[in-house]
Structures are given as structure tokens and as C-alpha cells.
């Protein structure tokens, strides 16, 4: 453990990390967002979904720096008296959960299909890559909308809110696999022709073992970068769906749901209900994106 840490501190990656102040700032911001989200039940000042804790007495309080604000509710409250900071933390938790699960799903689908397409070749490859091309010619949000729409029509009404989380993970997950498939197919094609793969074939190693143990570990390099950027874009897609009202329900709101609900009060003066979740969303997406960009550059020897 200590050794691994020492190696990390000594590595090129750490060196290029330290050299870029923007990346350090992004890392800190991302860390705060993620920690705040993951540990929301312990860190949040209030539990906004515990009816015993909220009181209509506190409704529509402005943030602390405005006249009438209270230090108990740093970012103000909504019309039901819920603490905005806490709803943001709980909301980020949902957003992050959806984004990470959807990214993992995209990654599993994309890496598997890309590996098989690249290694097997022929018709299997043509079929997979044509499907990928077709899917790529539609905007991601349209496909996510389509899949979540199908999910909504298929499921009985009373289960929709309960299963919303799974439907949205599925719809975002099925949208994002193309990039992984293309990238992994490309590096598989390169690795497949290297002599160590041919040596394994000569030895008589079965194809699926060659794919799994020889090609895959050597083809995974760029996947980490895509996955990081993928999380950021999944957060955005989820927020868009929720903002449009086809994502997370108000009983289990994500950042997108919060922004959607808050915008109704924008013109009556309670701007904080929608603006603060919006800022949280932007900070989260930008910081994760910056980290992904840095990772891409740092891992790409040609750009050094």
C-alpha cells in the first residue's frame, strides 16, 4: 500500500498533475462534489426528505448572505421549507449514481462488442459497427428519450416512479456504448496482429481466452479516459431528461429534477431554488470533464 503510494507520487502522471493548477482545482472541486454526494446522509445539515425535520415556517428563506437569510439554511430553502444545500447534496447523489451506473453499463456493452468485432472480424464486425454508425447518427438525448419513453409505456403506472432509476440508467447506458466499441475495436485490430497474439494462437489458446487475457488488457488504455468524460456527459444527459420531466420523479429528485421544479419560482423572486442546483451541476460536469481531458493528455505520449 505504502509502496503503491510512493510509486504514484513518483510517476509521470503525478508530475503532470502537479504542474497544472487548473487540473488541481478541478480535482478538488470534483472531490468536494463527489464526497458531498456520496456522504450526503452524514454530511448534509438537514434531511430534506424527513417530514419530521422540515417545517413550513422556514419556507422560501433566501440564502444566508441576503437579507432575511438564516445561518441554519446556508443556501436558503424552498417553498416546503427544505434546505437547498441538503437537497443539492442528496440530488447530486442521485445524479452521480445514475451517471456512474450508466457509464459502467455503456462500458461493459461497448468494450465487449468492440472486442468481439475487432477480434472476430467479418460479418459480425460489419453488423456491430453498422449498428454503431446508425446509433451515432442520432443525438444521444433522442435515443435516451426514446428508450425511457418505451420504458414508461411498458411499465404499469404505479411502478413508474419506483423503477424510474433503473429505466433512466438503462436508457443512458444503452446510449453511450458506441464510443467504447469504436475505440476498443480499433485497439483490438492493432493488438490482434501483434506477434504475441499469434504466438498464443500457435500454442492453441482458445479464442475467448486470447480476447480476454491477451487482447483486452492491452486494448483498455483509452477506455479509462472515455469513461471519465462519459460520466460527465451522463450527468448532463440525466439532468436533461429529468429537466424535461421524463427522468427522476420529484420523490427522488436528481439535480435535473431540482432545477426543473425550481424554475417555476424563478420569476417570483426565489431564484436560489433553481440557480444553486444549476451551479452545482455545472461545477460537477466541468470539473469531471477537465479531469478527463487532463487524463487523456497525460496518458497520450504523443502530446507530451
Amino acid at each position: 500500500m505504502m509502496q503503491a503510494l510512493a510509486r504514484l507520487l513518483d510517476s509521470d502522471l503525478w508530475w503532470s498533475f502537479k504542474r497544472s493548477p487548473l487540473t488541481v482545482a478541478a480535482a478538488i472541486a470534483a472531490f468536494l462534489c463527489i464526497a458531498g454526494a456520496v456522504f450526503a446522509p452524514w454530511l448534509a445539515p438537514h434531511n430534506p426528505y424527513d417530514l419530521a425535520q422540515i417545517s413550513l415556517m422556514n419556507s422560501n428563506l433566501p440564502p444566508v448572505f441576503q437579507k432575511g437569510g438564516s445561518s441554519e439554511f446556508l443556501l436558503g430553502t424552498d417553498q416546503q421549507g427544505r434546505d437547498i444545500l441538503s437537497t443539492i447534496m442528496y440530488g447530486s447523489r442521485v445524479s452521480l449514481l445514475v451517471a456512474v451506473c450508466a457509464t459502467v453499463m455503456s462500458m461493459l456493452i461497448g468494450v465487449t462488442l468492440g472486442l468481439v468485432a475487432g477480434y472476430v472480424g467479418g460479418r459480425v464486425e460489419s453488423f456491430i459497427m453498422r449498428v454503431a454508425d446508425i446509433q451515432l447518427s442520432f443525438p444521444a438525448i433522442l435515443i435516451a428519450l426514446l428508450i425511457s419513453g418505451i420504458g414508461r409505456t411498458v411499465l404499469p403506472r404505479e411502478m413508474q416512479d419506483q423503477l424510474a432509476l433503473y429505466v433512466i440508467i438503462l436508457s443512458i447506458g444503452l446510449t453511450g456504448w458506441v464510443q467504447y466499441a469504436r475505440t476498443v475495436r480499433g485497439s483490438t485490430l492493432v493488438e490482434k496482429n501483434k506477434e504475441y497474439v499469434q504466438a498464443a494462437r500457435v500454442i492453441g489458446v482458445p479464442s475467448f481466452r486470447i480476447m480476454l487475457f491477451h487482447v483486452l488488457p492491452n486494448a483498455l488504455g483509452p477506455v479509462l479516459v472515455i469513461a471519465t468524460l462519459g460520466v460527465a456527459s451522463a450527468i448532463l444527459t440525466e439532468a436533461t431528461l429529468s429537466f424535461l420531466g421524463v427522468g427522476m420523479p420529484p420523490t427522488q429528485p436528481s439535480l435535473g429534477t431540482l432545477i426543473n421544479e425550481g424554475q417555476n419560482y424563478l420569476f417570483s423572486g426565489e431564484w436560489w431554488i433553481t440557480i444553486f442546483p444549476g451551479i452545482a451541476l455545472i461545477v460537477m460536469v466541468i470539473s469531471v470533464n477537465l479531469l478527463g481531458d487532463w487524463l487523456r493528455d497525460a496518458l497520450n505520449p504523443k502530446l507530451r
Binding site: 506477434e195 504475441y196 504466438a199 494462437r201 500457435v202 500454442i203 492453441g204 479464442s207 491477451h214 492491452n218
Partner: peptide, 29 residues
């Protein structure tokens, strides 16, 4: 080389190859 029948496997054990490029013929990982 992709034939998985028993006879093919048995024969494959008896025939091996050494490749030209010692840098590419061993899996780096």
C-alpha cells in the same frame, strides 16, 4: 490454428514457432 478439435490440439502441442520480433512476441502485461 483456431480449430479446437482434440486432434488439432494434440498436433498443435508438437509444433511451435519462434517469432522474429522479440519485442512484439511477448505480452507486455
Amino acid at each position: 490454428a483456431d480449430d479446437t478439435s482434440e486432434a488439432a490440439r494434440a498436433l498443435r502441442r508438437r509444433v511451435q514457432m519462434i517469432f522474429q520480433d522479440p519485442y512484439a512476441s511477448l505480452n507486455p502485461r
